[in-house]
Design a protein around this nucleic acid. Structure first.
Lengths: 211, 211
DNA sequence: CTACTAGTGTGGACGTCGTCCACAAGCGCT
DNA sequence: AGCGCTTGTGGACGACGTCCACACTAGTAG
């Protein structure tokens, strides 16, 4: 990857848009959204700065594309965690385990990939686009949709009254997202691994109980 | 305010550091932390860009000072809300009302002053400094300390088992902070006032119940 | 009252950034 | 073979953070 094209094979790059996004993701990985710098992105792609303007109106638009990709990565990471979940036969316990696993995976993703996490979830987006395909993981679902499904399962298992279902995703998401942000760049920044895991479990537990 | 010193009264400004912070806060108010631009700050203060370097090592350091000030403003806003709280005589109900009021005020501050909120709570800081005087509101307490006190009251009222007290502030804070962030620049951005208030109350309720 | 020194603001410069405009080169069509 | 659209290039502009050398002011020491 990122083989430097010493002499450009063709004048037309072929997949510049895609290449720029990938490089942008790499930049975001190490430095967060602020590190997605247009000039550096094009430089690493082996192309003039202005070339980006043929595929993105703006640095903003590049960043949004990178953000989508980062959300997709988060979704994939969550899905992987979910695959490791064996059903116990008890629908209620399974539904709860599902919620917990999503919450844990969310916070863990933030810890493991702080730059990507911030790129994914702190670049302004509308709720409308929360289900857009570009944000979906390899399983075809966005993080938001994964959470929604888990809450549905909770309702089906009779552990969440249907009248409390609407808006429950905001509730659950807020809790884990808040923890992730505080750990990443907030006042909880100095906590060590064990303390973060403890806080994580605590928050998830409180939310599952309090929904 | 901001009277342009057409001819500088004295060559020595006298309170440049303070003036820069105030202008910085004003910039943050309308544009968030990214808007705290060193050159613009000095320009509005009527001073050369380099003058700032006599008082701050960095743009980072200016920003941190602005962040502290913004946290102090948040604390003041929360304290104001708390003053409006009349005791009901029931210690338990009072303690719960306290927690709720803090949560509501936190989210409301984020809505009312999005720029300051982001300046206050998304500029990286250590937990160690969460109690530093510069972040305190007019009542002398930081937002974090206000929350801690409310949780103590909850314990005293017997509504929170003492063994669950440690770490409870992270839990409570995470929930409201997460909601605030999602509303400000996350996927909940498009929600209208009523929906936000509903989500806010829901989150606070869930956390009070789930602690 | 004068001279030194430390502190504070100025001026100019450098490199980087996002973005714009004019141009050139390749590709697909007729 | 030639035309036109798309895509990449080159150079430029203004704004930013930061650095260095300088200038002025104030307080202190002689």
């Amino acid at each position: 990857m990122t083989a430097i094209p010493s002499s450009r094979e063709t004048y037309r790059h072929g997949g510049l848009r895609e290449a720029l996004i990938e490089v942008g993701v790499e930049l975001a990985r190490t430095g967060g959204p602020d590190a997605v710098v247009l000039r550096e992105t094009t430089r690493r792609t082996g192309v003039a700065p202005n070339a980006a303007y043929r595929h993105f109106a703006d640095r903003q638009e590049l960043l949004r594309a990178v953000s989508d990709r980062a959300q997709a990565l988060a979704a994939t990471r969550i899905e992987e965690r979910l695959r490791g979940l064996g059903g116990t036969g008890d629908a209620g316990e399974d539904a709860r385990a599902l919620i917990r696993a999503i919450g844990h995976a969310y916070v863990d993703f933030a810890r493991a990939e702080p730059g990507l996490f911030r790129a994914a979830f702190t670049v302004p987006r509308d709720l409308v686009t929360a289900g857009s395909r570009t944000k979906a993981g390899s399983g075809g679902r966005t993080p938001f949709q994964l959470l929604a499904r888990a809450l549905d399962a909770l309702v089906e298992a009779g552990l969440l009254p249907p009248e409390r279902r609407p808006g429950a995703e905001f509730c659950a998401w807020s809790a884990v997202h808040g923890l992730a942000m505080l750990v990443l760049e907030g006042p909880l920044h100095a906590l060590d691994e064990a303390a973060v895991v403890a806080a994580r479990d605590r928050v998830v537990e409180a939310i599952v109980r309090g929904l």
